[in-house]
C-alpha cells in the first residue's frame, strides 16, 4: 500500500472527503517540545491581549 498513513481516515465521497488533514510534519510539530514551548509563549501573549481587552 503506497498511501500515506495520515490520509487513511479520509473516505472517498463521504462527509470527510472535502476537509484538510495534517501531514506527518504538522503532526510531529504539535508535540515537538521546543516548538511547542515557543507556541506556549506566543499563545499566552495572544490570550493576554484578548483578556485585557475584555476586562
Amino acid at each position: 500500500m503506497a498511501g500515506k498513513k495520515e490520509e487513511a481516515n479520509i473516505k472517498a465521497y463521504s462527509q470527510n472527503f472535502t476537509t484538510m488533514t495534517p501531514g506527518s510534519f504538522a503532526k510531529k510539530m504539535r508535540t515537538c517540545v521546543i516548538f511547542q514551548f515557543i507556541r506556549f509563549i506566543v499563545i499566552n501573549l495572544k490570550m493576554l491581549v484578548v483578556v485585557s481587552k475584555s476586562h
Binding site: 499563545i43 490570550m47 491581549v49
Partner: peptide
Amino acid sequence: DYTFGEIGLAGHWI
C-alpha cells in the same frame, strides 16, 4: 486580529 486557534502540546500545558 484577536480570534485565533491552534492545536498542540502548548494548549495542553496551558
